[in-house]
């Protein structure tokens, strides 16, 4: 994927990082574009476009109060209604967001100071994804 003549030789762990990032990006973008096309075609529509447009100037909490009757918090509201194309788009976004974590885990060195940097980095990425659930 995307090799050029002036690429320099990479160490094996960097190659794993690059490959993992590329694969997750392709998967995420495929879901976003596929579900996005379905969304704009009106398939799996859960909130009418006119309702979205009429309320998208509101702060996020008010927007969801007006369109769904409740604030959105955590991830349950996304995965509980995957018949909605808009929610599938968000799943694609979530895949893109996990790309760096998967890439860091894929490349984890077995020794050296960088092993600890990447372990901390992975823990931070996991914590950041879980933090909204604790609010």
């Amino acid at each position: 994927m995307g090799h050029h003549e002036h690429d320099i030789p990479l160490d094996p762990s960097s190659v794993k990082f690059v490959r993992a990032m590329e694969v997750l990006t392709i998967i995420g973008m495929t879901i976003v574009i596929g579900a996005g096309l379905a969304y704009f075609a009106g398939w799996g529509q859960c909130t009418p476009f006119e309702t979205v447009v009429a309320n998208w100037h509101l702060p996020v909490a008010e927007y969801w109060e007006m369109t769904r009757g409740a604030e959105s918090q955590g991830y349950g509201w996304i995965i509980h209604n995957l018949r909605c194309a808009a929610r599938v788009v968000l799943v694609g976004m979530a895949v893109l967001m996990t790309a760096p974590l998967v890439a860091v885990l894929a490349m984890l060195p077995t020794k050296g100071i960088y092993r600890w940097f990447y372990i901390v980095l992975a823990l931070e990425l996991i914590a950041a994804s879980l933090m909204p659930l604790l609010e």
Partner: peptide, 22 residues
């Protein structure tokens, strides 16, 4: 690497609107 850390908060709070973001 850095952006997802902040983006999860926006996703969980419903601040990523498909009509804009796609």
């Amino acid at each position: 690497v850095n952006t997802p850390a902040a983006a999860w908060v926006y996703l969980a709070n419903g601040a990523i609107l498909p009509m804009i973001v796609v």
